[in-house]
């Protein structure tokens, strides 16, 4: 009997429109409360839906979707897509009102200089001592960006620097306890949401992706690596001397060739590290701690690594960052530019920025000078003289305009709905990014996964959501009308067992949810 897996994904979406953000967020949730069958949580604007997922406004003021608990990467991608379909439909209703237009983006970083990053957090249930995870998992997290990177630009660079994974610029350490500041490659949060003794690995170094294959591979390979660590069959000898430095090196290398120092032994490329994990996984295919979909993942994993080794541009219709790299290379060529010429100009801008603000080297200060049109030309002359930069003001201005154009393209790539660049390319039939088993998305908009507490949660909300007053969190569902509770602390629960609330519990629940006395 194969081991069950459980995984989930939380995605933060950037919101933009011509009405105030607070109004747009409130209207989005008002539409959701009106149009979607749901159970509310203890917080305002926080809904559990009949497909088992959760839609809420998160700290920082953005909509966030959490998938239900899924048992395979195919199921996970299906519910991410179902969630995005739900959001797109809500946007259509909002934008019909003509009060204003609102858009949502799968964005990972902002390009305004504000330093914002939108998270895409992965969860994996496991039974390993959490202290064993970082050393064994970090080399995977550092190197998987060769297929799981969203692609884009380094948001903290003053020029134009392509990155396989823009969120890497916002990571500051190998291991962290924080999720909003000092983010780490490995996050130590361990809120199991299970009464069975498992732990929940919570990763925040990943990115929101458009390619189904990239999203599926990331979930599948990471699940297998976690299972190998649990079974003590993970590869040895791939610890890195400086994981964060290695991740930044890999993110800046679209050729996927650069090597970084290992903790011991010869230097390693991202592909070499991934090969080690893949070979170890292939040796575990018959093991009971591996899920029954491990074969599919290893087959696709091997195929993608082979194509990356041959020529990453072969994946320009399949994975996020190679798609973007191909599109942006084309934009450069149309202007008679190359990545090399862009790189030289970006290097000059970095030098000028350092000269301008040697004490703080803050991006904001740099942007302020450049946007002050009257003084910018003069400031640039002074700076370029100081740094012996051969770039004239006119060339700089054209470069910065092109930079804005690329950033615009980058943000619009992941826009939800028919206007998004990725969606347009997909509808045009020029992409080949499908992943094994990812189908039934339309059904997943209303139906929960087939097993586990996600099914019980979703079925109950569908059955009672219109007639009973329901409250929910990941481990409980309360029927306030019937004064009873469904205990869902076992994520693999298969039957719904209602329990009547005692008078004491009822008082406590009433207080918790601040319900009206008339209930």
């Amino acid at each position: 009997v194969k081991s069950p897996c459980l995984l989930g994904l939380e995605t933060e979406y950037a919101i933009f429109g011509d009405r105030p953000r607070g109004n747009a967020l409130a209207e989005l949730m008002r539409q959701a409360e009106f149009r979607l069958r749901h159970a509310t949580s203890a917080r305002r604007r926080d809904l559990f839906l009949q497909n088992g997922s959760r839609l809420y406004l998160d700290t920082g003021g953005h909509p966030e979707l959490a998938t239900p608990e899924c048992t395979s990467p195919s199921e996970l991608v299906r519910y991410v897509l179902a969630g995005e379909s739900i959001l797109s439909e809500l946007l259509q209703f909002m934008n019909r009102s003509r009060i204003g237009s609102t858009r949502l983006y799968r964005a990972n970083v902002d390009y305004s200089g504000a330093g914002t990053s939108w998270g895409c957090h992965e969860s994996y249930l496991h039974r390993t001592d959490p202290s064993r995870l970082p050393d064994s998992l970090i080399p995977h997290l550092v190197s998987r960006i060769v297929y799981a990177g969203a692609g884009g630009f380094d948001p903290l660079a003053p020029g134009i620097e392509f990155s396989l994974s823009p969120r890497v610029a916002h990571l500051q350490r190998a291991i962290s306890t924080d999720s909003t500041y000092n983010r780490g490659i490995f996050h130590t949060k361990n809120e199991p949401l299970s009464s069975r003794g498992e732990h929940r690995l919570h990763l925040l170094c990943g990115e929101s992706l458009c390619s189904h294959l990239a999203s599926w591979l990331r979930a599948g390979t990471t699940s297998l690596v976690v299972a190998m660590i649990e079974g003590r069959r993970h590869p040895r000898g791939i610890a890195l001397k400086d994981p964060l430095g290695a991740m930044k090196t890999f993110a800046a290398d679209p050729d996927c060739r650069r090597e970084v120092p290992a903790a011991s032994g010869p230097p390693l490329s991202a592909l070499a590290i991934q090969r080690k994990y893949l070979e170890a996984a292939e040796a575990c295919l018959e093991e009971s701690f591996f899920p029954d979909w491990a074969d599919d993942v290893c087959r696709e994993w091997r195929a993608v690594l082979a194509r990356l080794e041959s020529d990453p541009s072969e994946l320009a219709t399949s994975l996020d960052w190679p798609m973007k790299r191909a599109l942006y290379t084309r934009r450069l060529e149309l202007r008679g530019l190359t990545w090399e010429s862009i790189s030289r100009t970006s290097g000059l801008l970095s030098a000028a920025r350092r000269a301008m603000d040697p004490l703080t080297d803050r991006f904001k200060a740099w942007e302020t000078v450049l946007r002050c049109q009257d003084g910018a030309s003069f400031a640039w002359q002074r700076l370029s003289s100081h740094t012996r930069c051969p770039l004239g003001w006119d060339e700089l201005e054209a470069f910065l305009q092109f930079r804005l154009e690329l950033f615009e393209t980058e943000i619009r790539f992941g826009e939800l709905g028919p206007d998004g660049l990725f969606t347009q390319l997909d509808l045009a039939g020029v992409l080949s990014h499908s992943a094994p088993g990812v189908s039934g998305v339309a059904r997943a908009v209303s139906d929960p996964p087939a097993t586990g507490r996600a099914k019980i949660r979703g079925d109950t909300i569908r059955e009672l959501g219109a007639t009973a007053e329901l409250r929910c969190d990941w481990m409980h569902l309360w029927d306030l009308t019937g004064r009873r509770v469904l205990e869902l602390s076992d994520p693999f629960a298969s039957t719904a067992s209602w329990r009547t609330l005692s008078e004491c519990e009822w008082e406590s629940i009433r207080g918790r949810f601040d319900i009206l006395a008339s209930l």
Binding site: F16, G60, T116, A326, L404, R412, A428, V430
Partner: peptide
């Protein structure tokens, strides 16, 4: 793919009328 990409990008950039969303979407993340 590249031709389709050009068409889509040009369409998006012309819609924006010079007001780029790319450098104004900034708040709300974490």
């Amino acid at each position: 793919m590249l031709e389709a990409g050009d068409r889509a990008i040009n369409r998006v950039l012309s819609q924006d009328n010079g007001t780029f969303v790319g450098t104004t979407v900034q708040s709300g993340g974490q």
